[in-house]
Design a protein around this nucleic acid. Structure first.
Length: 446
RNA sequence: CGGGGCGUGGCGCAGCCUGGUAGCGCGCUUGUUUUGGGUACAAGAGGCCCCCGGUUCGAGUCCGGGCGCCCCGACCA
């Protein structure tokens, strides 16, 4: 993208409503604009980040055999009356009436819908297990939206739902999902620690939430350092084998990890002092097993090997995709702006033309830009160098390719790594190879 | 939902108490200048002062009602 043509409103001054770093930076870097309380329009750069995160989430869901569907945002109240949640859900649910006065709602979650869909299609234990997910907009009418996209009313979320024939199978599914989550967050360049969670009103007894470590997190967290040191991408787990999954799962859960609500001082004392990590975290994912709660309440059963009907065991698994955009920024920024992990960055690099109009500079910039126009944001504006440096730091591109008149004469580019501030003086070819060579997977994990 | 605050050019704000025909900084436009970390000068454009009603000769300012947004708390992917 040529910046001179981009719909990319960077701000020098911070809008008054933004309180925390990620919100401020998202507005300043031109990622989003608020349209109502807790409702945001995603501008081109913000959308690229959102899509990058979504894609990594999708790949890891697919990798454990979950199948993608896309369910609607608007749902009929009928489904929710069947499960009994229409009355139970409360004012968080946005209720709508259509012109025929039918009761509709903007979905806050999709357990009912997926269970109904499942029931329409799956009739026999032979067709189990099934794991379905979608990535879709949701709406919860929060009393008090805040923190930008981190606590919006409308949000983009991956939610997966699993159906198994037995408790044992459901547990295996749960463990597979935990592995997928650990890998997903690692690829996103953030550290997310799984913590035992309260199963709450939904019930069930297997539940973990994943918290990204960031000083502005809403919950206090206590965990064993071992949990932030593992390389889940290279952890050897056979996801088809229950025993292998169990080894993996025990390997994760044997370490202490709890949010302040679940914190237990006595167990905490058992963690060696030098391995105790205390901080704050932002919840970005939640997995739980809840058994037959919905299959039973909605009357969805399948036939078993003995010919008798039974209720499949379910779990559900969410990742807050839009929230993650904010969470990644919370976990990765400095005074100057965002520091995108390679894997989610909207552009791999900014090309900073320090002297548009200079023949050598223009030629070199065009050559770089032409090599991968979709990967680069080419700052071709006739602005001062300082403006461009500041905007590039603010937007947080992993690399800056700085082209000035001095270097351009010799075909040299100055490469700056945003995260570390390292600078390299390279030929155009070497610079391109270095910048385009970083595919990001896991490389930025802190 | 309880408590607090705010709505004035695109953004950040002053003006309101003590009514008299709207101002500052940034941004934007044009020209000159500058050219490796938000350049300087000059000339411009841009405002239903959130909305409705009331008081008044006169309302951004006072009064009533509404809407919107933010902050603290309770609640949450």
């Amino acid at each position: 993208m040529r910046l001179s043509r981009g719909f990319l409103p960077t701000l020098k001054e911070v809008p008054a409503e933004a309180q925390i770093a990620s919100h401020r930076l998202m507005l300043r870097a031109g990622l989003v604009r608020q349209t109502s309380a807790g409702i945001y329009a995603w501008l081109p750069v913000g959308l690229r980040v959102l899509r990058n995160i979504e894609q990594i989430v999708r790949e890891e869901q697919n990798a454990i055999g979950a199948q993608e569907v896309l369910m609607p945002t608007v749902q009929s109240s009928e489904l929710w009356k069947r499960s009994g949640r229409y009355d139970a859900y409360g004012p968080e649910m946005l209720r709508i009436r259509d012109r025929q006065d039918r009761e509709l709602l903007y979905g806050p979650t999709n357990e009912e819908m997926i269970t109904d869909l499942f029931g329409q299609v799956i009739k026999s234990y032979r067709e189990l297990p099934q794991a379905l997910y979608h990535v879709q907009w949701k709406f919860r009418d929060e009393l008090r939206p805040r923190f930008g996209v981190m606590r919006g009313r409308e949000f983009f979320m991956k939610d997966a739902y699993s159906f198994d024939a037995s408790y044992e199978d459901a547990v295996a599914t749960y463990r597979r999902m935990m592995l997928a989550y650990l890998r997903t967050f690692q690829r996103l360049g953030v550290r997310a620690v799984p913590m035992k969670a309260d199963t709450g009103p939904i019930g069930g007894d297997l539940s973990h939430e994943f918290l990204v470590l960031a000083p502005t997190g809403e919950s206090g967290v206590f965990f064993d350092a071992a949990l932030e040191e593992q390389d889940w991408l290279h952890e050897n787990v056979d996801i088809a084998d229950h025993a292998s999954l169990e080894v993996f799962f025990n390997g994760v859960t044997r370490f202490y990890a709890a949010t302040d609500e679940m914190h237990d001082e006595t167990s905490w004392e058992d963690v060696p002092a030098d391995r105790r990590r205390e901080g704050r975290g932002i919840e970005v994912g939640h997995i739980f097993y809840f058994g037959t709660k919905y299959t039973e309440s909605m009357g969805i059963s399948v036939s078993g090997p003995d010919g008798a009907q039974f209720f499949p065991e379910m779990g559900s698994y969410g990742i807050g995709v839009s929230r993650l955009v904010g969470a990644v920024i919370e976990a990765s920024h400095d005074e100057a702006g965002i520091i995108w992990p390679d894997s989610v960055a909207p552009y791999r690099a900014a090309i900073l033309s320090l002297k548009p109009g200079d023949e050598a500079v223009d030629a070199l910039c065009e050559r770089l830009y032409g090599a991968a126009p979709d990967a680069f944001l080419y700052d071709d504006r006739s602005e001062r160098a300082g403006v461009k440096f500041n905007d590039a730091d603010l937007m947080g591109h992993p690399w800056q390719m700085i082209v000035g008149p001095r270097g351009a004469k010799e075909g040299k580019v100055e490469l700056k790594r945003r995260a570390t501030g390292e600078r390299f003086e390279l030929t155009a070819e070497d610079a391109l190879a270095k910048v385009l060579g970083t595919d990001g997977a896991g490389k930025d994990a802190a």
